[in-house]
Amino acid sequence: MTDSPTETEPFDDLPGDLMIWVLIVSELLVFGAGLAAFLAVRATDPAGFATAQAALHPAAAALNTAVLVTSGVAAALAARSAEAARLGAGRLWLAFAMALGVVFLVVKGFEYADLAAQGIGVESHAAFTFYYLLTGFHAAHVAAGVLILGLVAIRLRPYPVETAAAFWHMVDLVWVLLFPVIYLMG
């Protein structure tokens, strides 16, 4: 009634579901704001933040970056297999992506355990409040992502697999921004 048939909505060439993009943008805003707040508070106490950063585990986190981007390519390949109706290959890639997600969480768990053993908690210093909030919130997304990848593997269909993979890429995307700002930048 309103749109003439020739007029195309710009949303039409957006790859994947519109809702997953709403989610991706929202998450980027949340983590972007969180990282900006981290840097802003850090400016008020550079020495305190430097001391706190020294207690973190950049090597473990670097390993986790490799784990996560590898898991990401596996999820993308799973989506491609599902598109081509290669169900076995799709499930295999999903299982691989999930396994790496679990590896990420285990490594993260070691980091948290080590900090806890040093008596470092959420309220120890503003830097740790941000560290736990941002990485904890991200880790919760990793856990949710593993679950989602598992769910779409059951009845493998192109559309759900693609949407789940997009969620997983969002988790990846957030991490590659989180990692340098929190662990590396001195």
């Binding site: 929202s26 949340v30 704001a33 969180g34 309220e123 409040t129 909030l133």
Partner: peptide, 18 residues
């Protein structure tokens, strides 16, 4: 409530404008 709510509240409620 614990102080981390200050950041969770500030960040998420800012997005409520959307």
């Amino acid at each position: 409530t614990p102080a981390y709510w200050q950041w969770i509240g500030s960040i998420f409620s800012s997005l409520e404008v959307i």
